[in-house]
Amino acid sequence: MNMPQVKTEKAKAVAMPQPAPAVVLPLEIKRSQLGEKILARLGDIAARVIPPVVVIAIALIVWELLCRKAGATLPPPSRVLKETRELILDPFFDRGGIDRGLFWHLSASLQRVALGYALASIVGVALGTLVGQSMWAMRGLDPIFQVLRTVPPLAWLPLSLAAFRDGQPSAIFVIFITAIWPVIINTAVGIRNIPQDYRNVAKVLRLNQLEFFWKIMVPSAAPYIFTGLRIGIGLSWLAIVAAEMLIGGVGIGFFIWDAWNSSHISEIILALIYVGIIGFVLDRMVAGVSSLVTRGTAAN
Protein backbone atom coordinates (compact mmCIF):
# COMPACT_ATOMS: atom_id res chain seq x y z
CA MET A 1 0.00 0.00 0.00
CA ASN A 2 2.75 2.40 0.96
CA MET A 3 5.05 1.39 -1.82
CA PRO A 4 4.05 3.90 -4.52
CA GLN A 5 4.32 6.83 -2.16
CA VAL A 6 7.77 5.85 -1.06
CA LYS A 7 8.80 5.50 -4.65
CA THR A 8 7.63 8.97 -5.70
CA GLU A 9 9.30 10.51 -2.69
CA LYS A 10 12.55 8.86 -3.61
CA ALA A 11 12.22 9.94 -7.20
CA LYS A 12 11.60 13.53 -6.10
CA ALA A 13 14.54 13.45 -3.79
CA VAL A 14 16.76 12.37 -6.63
CA ALA A 15 15.35 14.84 -9.11
CA MET A 16 15.40 17.83 -6.76
CA PRO A 17 19.08 18.83 -6.51
CA GLN A 18 19.76 19.78 -10.16
CA PRO A 19 16.63 20.58 -12.13
CA ALA A 20 18.24 22.87 -14.72
CA PRO A 21 20.70 20.59 -16.60
CA ALA A 22 18.15 17.77 -16.61
CA VAL A 23 16.36 19.47 -19.52
CA VAL A 24 19.41 19.64 -21.75
CA LEU A 25 21.01 16.30 -21.01
CA PRO A 26 18.39 13.86 -22.33
CA LEU A 27 18.36 15.47 -25.78
CA GLU A 28 22.10 15.22 -26.14
CA ILE A 29 22.09 11.61 -25.08
CA LYS A 30 19.37 10.79 -27.55
CA ARG A 31 21.17 12.31 -30.48
CA SER A 32 24.47 10.65 -29.71
CA GLN A 33 22.67 7.33 -29.17
CA LEU A 34 21.01 7.60 -32.55
CA GLY A 35 24.31 8.46 -34.18
CA GLU A 36 25.98 5.55 -32.45
CA LYS A 37 23.23 3.21 -33.61
CA ILE A 38 23.61 4.27 -37.24
CA LEU A 39 27.36 3.96 -36.99
CA ALA A 40 27.10 0.52 -35.46
CA ARG A 41 24.70 -0.50 -38.21
CA LEU A 42 26.99 0.80 -40.93
CA GLY A 43 29.93 -0.96 -39.34
CA ASP A 44 27.92 -4.16 -39.29
CA ILE A 45 27.05 -3.88 -42.98
CA ALA A 46 30.64 -3.00 -43.87
CA ALA A 47 31.91 -6.03 -41.96
CA ARG A 48 29.71 -8.23 -44.13
CA VAL A 49 30.23 -6.53 -47.49
CA ILE A 50 33.91 -5.64 -47.44
CA PRO A 51 35.45 -9.15 -47.14
CA PRO A 52 33.72 -10.66 -50.20
CA VAL A 53 34.36 -7.50 -52.25
CA VAL A 54 38.05 -7.63 -51.38
CA VAL A 55 38.30 -11.34 -52.18
CA ILE A 56 36.53 -10.89 -55.52
CA ALA A 57 38.74 -7.93 -56.40
CA ILE A 58 41.91 -9.92 -55.63
CA ALA A 59 40.65 -12.90 -57.64
CA LEU A 60 39.87 -10.66 -60.62
CA ILE A 61 43.29 -9.04 -60.48
CA VAL A 62 45.07 -12.39 -60.32
CA TRP A 63 42.94 -13.70 -63.16
CA GLU A 64 43.62 -10.59 -65.22
CA LEU A 65 47.38 -10.87 -64.66
CA LEU A 66 47.47 -14.57 -65.44
CA CYS A 67 45.41 -14.43 -68.66
CA ARG A 68 46.73 -11.15 -70.00
CA LYS A 69 49.90 -12.57 -71.52
CA ALA A 70 49.98 -13.61 -75.12
CA GLY A 71 49.26 -17.31 -75.53
CA ALA A 72 46.88 -17.52 -72.58
CA THR A 73 44.13 -20.05 -73.30
CA LEU A 74 41.43 -18.25 -71.32
CA PRO A 75 40.38 -14.61 -71.71
CA PRO A 76 41.08 -12.13 -68.89
CA PRO A 77 38.07 -10.50 -67.14
CA SER A 78 38.49 -7.27 -69.09
CA ARG A 79 38.08 -9.12 -72.38
CA VAL A 80 35.16 -11.17 -71.00
CA LEU A 81 33.40 -7.92 -70.16
CA LYS A 82 34.14 -6.42 -73.57
CA GLU A 83 33.04 -9.48 -75.53
CA THR A 84 29.86 -10.18 -73.55
CA ARG A 85 28.76 -6.56 -73.34
CA GLU A 86 25.86 -7.13 -75.71
CA LEU A 87 24.70 -10.23 -73.83
CA ILE A 88 24.83 -8.48 -70.49
CA LEU A 89 23.12 -5.28 -71.61
CA ASP A 90 20.36 -6.89 -73.68
CA PRO A 91 19.31 -10.26 -72.28
CA PHE A 92 15.96 -10.09 -74.09
CA PHE A 93 16.89 -10.12 -77.79
CA ASP A 94 15.39 -12.87 -79.92
CA ARG A 95 16.67 -13.50 -83.45
CA GLY A 96 14.90 -16.84 -83.73
CA GLY A 97 16.24 -20.35 -83.23
CA ILE A 98 18.78 -20.52 -80.47
CA ASP A 99 20.14 -17.03 -81.18
CA ARG A 100 18.46 -15.44 -78.21
CA GLY A 101 19.32 -13.41 -75.14
CA LEU A 102 20.42 -15.09 -71.95
CA PHE A 103 17.08 -14.38 -70.33
CA TRP A 104 15.35 -16.77 -72.74
CA HIS A 105 17.92 -19.50 -72.24
CA LEU A 106 17.75 -19.21 -68.47
CA SER A 107 13.98 -19.08 -68.40
CA ALA A 108 13.75 -22.19 -70.61
CA SER A 109 16.06 -24.03 -68.19
CA LEU A 110 14.13 -22.76 -65.20
CA GLN A 111 10.85 -23.92 -66.70
CA ARG A 112 12.20 -27.44 -67.15
CA VAL A 113 13.54 -27.45 -63.60
CA ALA A 114 10.28 -26.06 -62.25
CA LEU A 115 8.25 -28.82 -63.91
CA GLY A 116 10.59 -31.68 -63.09
CA TYR A 117 11.18 -30.47 -59.56
CA ALA A 118 7.49 -29.90 -58.84
CA LEU A 119 6.71 -33.44 -60.01
CA ALA A 120 9.59 -34.82 -57.96
CA SER A 121 8.37 -32.97 -54.86
CA ILE A 122 4.82 -34.26 -55.12
CA VAL A 123 5.68 -37.85 -56.01
CA GLY A 124 8.66 -37.83 -53.63
CA VAL A 125 6.65 -36.73 -50.60
CA ALA A 126 3.90 -39.23 -51.46
CA LEU A 127 6.32 -42.15 -51.85
CA GLY A 128 8.31 -41.04 -48.81
CA THR A 129 5.13 -41.02 -46.75
CA LEU A 130 4.27 -44.51 -47.94
CA VAL A 131 7.74 -45.84 -47.14
CA GLY A 132 7.77 -44.06 -43.78
CA GLN A 133 4.34 -45.30 -42.74
CA SER A 134 4.26 -48.87 -43.93
CA MET A 135 6.76 -51.50 -42.90
CA TRP A 136 5.89 -53.55 -45.98
CA ALA A 137 6.38 -50.65 -48.37
CA MET A 138 9.71 -49.90 -46.75
CA ARG A 139 10.97 -53.45 -47.04
CA GLY A 140 9.80 -53.67 -50.64
CA LEU A 141 10.79 -50.27 -51.96
CA ASP A 142 13.77 -49.15 -49.91
CA PRO A 143 16.35 -51.51 -51.49
CA ILE A 144 15.23 -50.43 -54.96
CA PHE A 145 15.48 -46.77 -54.01
CA GLN A 146 18.91 -47.26 -52.52
CA VAL A 147 20.20 -48.76 -55.77
CA LEU A 148 18.46 -46.38 -58.16
CA ARG A 149 19.51 -43.24 -56.33
CA THR A 150 23.16 -43.96 -57.07
CA VAL A 151 22.57 -43.93 -60.84
CA PRO A 152 24.07 -40.67 -62.22
CA PRO A 153 21.40 -38.31 -63.63
CA LEU A 154 22.79 -38.27 -67.16
CA ALA A 155 22.73 -42.07 -67.35
CA TRP A 156 18.94 -41.78 -67.41
CA LEU A 157 18.95 -39.49 -70.44
CA PRO A 158 19.41 -42.03 -73.25
CA LEU A 159 16.73 -44.24 -71.72
CA SER A 160 14.28 -41.38 -71.39
CA LEU A 161 15.05 -40.19 -74.92
CA ALA A 162 14.24 -43.69 -76.12
CA ALA A 163 10.99 -43.68 -74.15
CA PHE A 164 9.77 -40.14 -74.88
CA ARG A 165 11.38 -39.62 -78.30
CA ASP A 166 11.68 -35.91 -77.57
CA GLY A 167 14.20 -33.70 -75.80
CA GLN A 168 11.83 -31.63 -73.69
CA PRO A 169 10.09 -34.41 -71.71
CA SER A 170 13.40 -36.27 -71.45
CA ALA A 171 15.11 -33.30 -69.80
CA ILE A 172 12.17 -32.91 -67.42
CA PHE A 173 12.33 -36.60 -66.59
CA VAL A 174 16.05 -36.35 -65.82
CA ILE A 175 15.35 -33.48 -63.40
CA PHE A 176 12.54 -35.49 -61.85
CA ILE A 177 14.60 -38.63 -61.33
CA THR A 178 17.52 -36.60 -59.96
CA ALA A 179 15.54 -34.60 -57.43
CA ILE A 180 13.19 -37.32 -56.23
CA TRP A 181 15.59 -39.50 -54.18
CA PRO A 182 16.57 -37.05 -51.46
CA VAL A 183 12.91 -36.03 -51.17
CA ILE A 184 11.75 -39.64 -50.76
CA ILE A 185 14.46 -40.62 -48.32
CA ASN A 186 14.20 -37.53 -46.11
CA THR A 187 10.40 -37.64 -46.06
CA ALA A 188 10.48 -41.29 -45.02
CA VAL A 189 12.92 -40.55 -42.20
CA GLY A 190 10.77 -37.63 -41.08
CA ILE A 191 7.62 -39.74 -41.02
CA ARG A 192 9.34 -42.57 -39.16
CA ASN A 193 10.59 -40.07 -36.58
CA ILE A 194 7.17 -38.71 -35.66
CA PRO A 195 7.18 -39.03 -31.86
CA GLN A 196 4.88 -41.72 -30.46
CA ASP A 197 3.37 -38.99 -28.28
CA TYR A 198 1.92 -37.23 -31.30
CA ARG A 199 0.57 -40.51 -32.61
CA ASN A 200 -1.06 -41.17 -29.24
CA VAL A 201 -2.64 -37.72 -29.26
CA ALA A 202 -4.02 -38.43 -32.72
CA LYS A 203 -5.39 -41.79 -31.54
CA VAL A 204 -7.09 -40.36 -28.46
CA LEU A 205 -8.67 -37.66 -30.64
CA ARG A 206 -9.57 -40.30 -33.24
CA LEU A 207 -8.14 -38.26 -36.10
CA ASN A 208 -8.86 -39.96 -39.42
CA GLN A 209 -6.12 -40.71 -41.97
CA LEU A 210 -6.51 -37.41 -43.79
CA GLU A 211 -6.57 -35.32 -40.61
CA PHE A 212 -3.58 -37.23 -39.30
CA PHE A 213 -1.69 -36.53 -42.53
CA TRP A 214 -2.33 -32.79 -42.55
CA LYS A 215 -2.38 -32.01 -38.85
CA ILE A 216 0.33 -34.29 -37.45
CA MET A 217 2.40 -35.90 -40.17
CA VAL A 218 3.15 -32.96 -42.46
CA PRO A 219 4.01 -30.42 -39.75
CA SER A 220 5.98 -32.97 -37.74
CA ALA A 221 8.00 -34.20 -40.72
CA ALA A 222 8.28 -30.76 -42.36
CA PRO A 223 11.87 -30.06 -41.29
CA TYR A 224 12.99 -33.37 -42.81
CA ILE A 225 10.89 -32.91 -45.94
CA PHE A 226 12.38 -29.49 -46.54
CA THR A 227 15.90 -30.80 -46.09
CA GLY A 228 15.11 -33.24 -48.90
CA LEU A 229 13.53 -30.52 -51.04
CA ARG A 230 16.57 -28.31 -50.59
CA ILE A 231 19.00 -31.01 -51.63
CA GLY A 232 16.63 -31.79 -54.51
CA ILE A 233 16.61 -28.27 -55.94
CA GLY A 234 20.40 -28.13 -55.87
CA LEU A 235 20.69 -31.44 -57.70
CA SER A 236 18.06 -30.38 -60.27
CA TRP A 237 20.00 -27.29 -61.17
CA LEU A 238 23.19 -29.34 -61.44
CA ALA A 239 21.51 -31.86 -63.71
CA ILE A 240 19.73 -29.46 -66.04
CA VAL A 241 22.91 -27.88 -67.42
CA ALA A 242 24.39 -31.27 -68.25
CA ALA A 243 21.14 -32.60 -69.70
CA GLU A 244 20.62 -29.55 -71.91
CA MET A 245 24.12 -29.86 -73.35
CA LEU A 246 23.04 -33.18 -74.76
CA ILE A 247 19.48 -32.47 -75.87
CA GLY A 248 20.15 -29.09 -77.52
CA GLY A 249 17.58 -26.37 -78.20
CA VAL A 250 17.01 -23.31 -76.05
CA GLY A 251 18.46 -23.54 -72.54
CA ILE A 252 21.48 -22.39 -70.62
CA GLY A 253 23.16 -25.80 -70.89
CA PHE A 254 23.08 -25.81 -74.66
CA PHE A 255 24.01 -22.13 -74.71
CA ILE A 256 27.27 -23.08 -72.98
CA TRP A 257 27.86 -26.01 -75.31
CA ASP A 258 27.13 -23.86 -78.34
CA ALA A 259 29.50 -21.16 -77.10
CA TRP A 260 32.22 -23.80 -76.72
CA ASN A 261 31.63 -25.04 -80.26
CA SER A 262 31.93 -21.46 -81.55
CA SER A 263 34.95 -20.79 -79.30
CA HIS A 264 33.20 -17.95 -77.48
CA ILE A 265 34.95 -18.62 -74.20
CA SER A 266 33.86 -15.28 -72.73
CA GLU A 267 30.23 -16.25 -73.18
CA ILE A 268 30.83 -19.50 -71.34
CA ILE A 269 32.28 -17.59 -68.40
CA LEU A 270 29.32 -15.21 -68.30
CA ALA A 271 26.88 -18.13 -68.47
CA LEU A 272 28.64 -19.89 -65.59
CA ILE A 273 28.31 -16.79 -63.44
CA TYR A 274 24.58 -16.67 -64.18
CA VAL A 275 24.16 -20.39 -63.48
CA GLY A 276 25.91 -19.97 -60.14
CA ILE A 277 23.82 -16.99 -59.10
CA ILE A 278 20.54 -18.63 -60.06
CA GLY A 279 21.46 -21.87 -58.27
CA PHE A 280 22.20 -19.82 -55.19
CA VAL A 281 18.90 -17.94 -55.45
CA LEU A 282 16.94 -21.21 -55.91
CA ASP A 283 18.55 -22.68 -52.80
CA ARG A 284 17.81 -19.54 -50.79
CA MET A 285 14.19 -19.60 -51.99
CA VAL A 286 13.58 -23.15 -50.81
CA ALA A 287 15.39 -22.37 -47.54
CA GLY A 288 13.18 -19.30 -47.11
CA VAL A 289 9.97 -21.23 -47.68
CA SER A 290 11.29 -23.90 -45.33
CA SER A 291 11.96 -21.55 -42.44
CA LEU A 292 8.55 -19.97 -43.01
CA VAL A 293 6.69 -23.29 -42.97
CA THR A 294 8.65 -25.03 -40.23
CA ARG A 295 8.44 -22.11 -37.82
CA GLY A 296 8.19 -23.61 -34.34
CA THR A 297 8.40 -27.23 -35.44
CA ALA A 298 12.03 -27.72 -34.66
CA ALA A 299 11.95 -26.26 -31.18
CA ASN A 300 10.27 -28.29 -28.52
Binding site: D197, R206, K215, G296
Partner: peptide
Protein backbone atom coordinates in the same frame (compact mmCIF):
# COMPACT_ATOMS: atom_id res chain seq x y z
CA UNK B 1 -10.66 -51.50 -26.59
CA UNK B 2 -9.59 -48.56 -28.72
CA UNK B 3 -8.59 -45.01 -27.88
CA UNK B 4 -11.17 -42.26 -27.76
CA UNK B 5 -11.86 -38.81 -26.34
CA UNK B 6 -14.14 -40.28 -23.63
CA UNK B 7 -10.88 -41.34 -21.92
CA UNK B 8 -8.69 -38.28 -22.36
CA UNK B 9 -5.05 -38.65 -21.39
CA UNK B 10 -2.71 -36.07 -19.92
CA UNK B 11 0.65 -37.45 -20.96
CA UNK B 12 3.75 -37.42 -18.84
CA UNK B 13 5.64 -35.12 -21.18
CA UNK B 14 2.71 -32.88 -22.11
CA UNK B 15 2.65 -34.01 -25.80
CA UNK B 16 1.57 -30.63 -27.08
CA UNK B 17 2.07 -30.14 -30.79
CA UNK B 18 4.95 -27.64 -31.01
CA UNK B 19 3.81 -26.07 -34.27
Amino acid sequence: NEPGPDRAVVFQNHSLLPW
